[in-house]
Amino acid sequence: MTPKRVELDLADLSVRQVNAALQAADQGIFHVLHPGGEHALACGLDAPIEVHVDGHVGYYCAGMNKHASVTVRGNAGTGCAENIMSGLVRVQGDASQSLAATGHGGLVVVEGSASARAGISMKGVDIVVGGDVGHMSAFMAQAGHLVVLGDAGSDLGDSIYEAEIFVRGSVASLGADCEEKPLDEEHRSILAGLLQRAGFAVDTATFKRYGSARRLYHFSIDHMDEY
């Protein structure tokens, strides 16, 4: 049985009505029309439905996503896929700041660029950005992967705990306690898997890998006297 295809048009429906319809579904393919930059579209989904948003969206699109696959055929505002738990969020244009902030799992793909603080406080989400990311990306990242096919802005990975960052282009500067690390076979294999899932055919050898130097958050016995 082919899943049913439903159109939800924001020219006729409110954001609340559209989100309620999406949240009530346990399967199906949904097309959200005329998003017009509205905020909080397709938030709080927790079933394996497929959602296509036909245009630009405002803040916090696909926030808290679980199981669902959400594609934005346009740009996304601040906090797209914030706190994503699982599933897939794909932005075909650019994403604004705080992409996938605090995300626990799932995959977030931006085909264009993401701006400042992409992956801030990420806790396990995988993020693949086809273009550039802005300053302070992966700030306080705890787990997961951030892959950048373009360039990274200043202070990449500032105060990073644990997470892997792969950047193909230049890095304006590394943040506190973030350092370049060797790109071994195991990392290339992880990277290749992420690129393949995100749909980018590029050579993993052209990337550099960055991560935590583990000097900032690890307890050091030398500091015992300070307590």
Binding site: H56, G58, G134
Partner: peptide
């Protein structure tokens, strides 16, 4: 401040849209 204000303008579907850099 937000795209939804721009979404009202004629011809917006063909516009170049970007976030100004710091």
């Amino acid at each position: 401040s937000e795209f939804r204000a721009i979404a009202q303008l004629p011809g917006v579907t063909d516009a170049d849209i970007w976030e100004p850099k710091p």
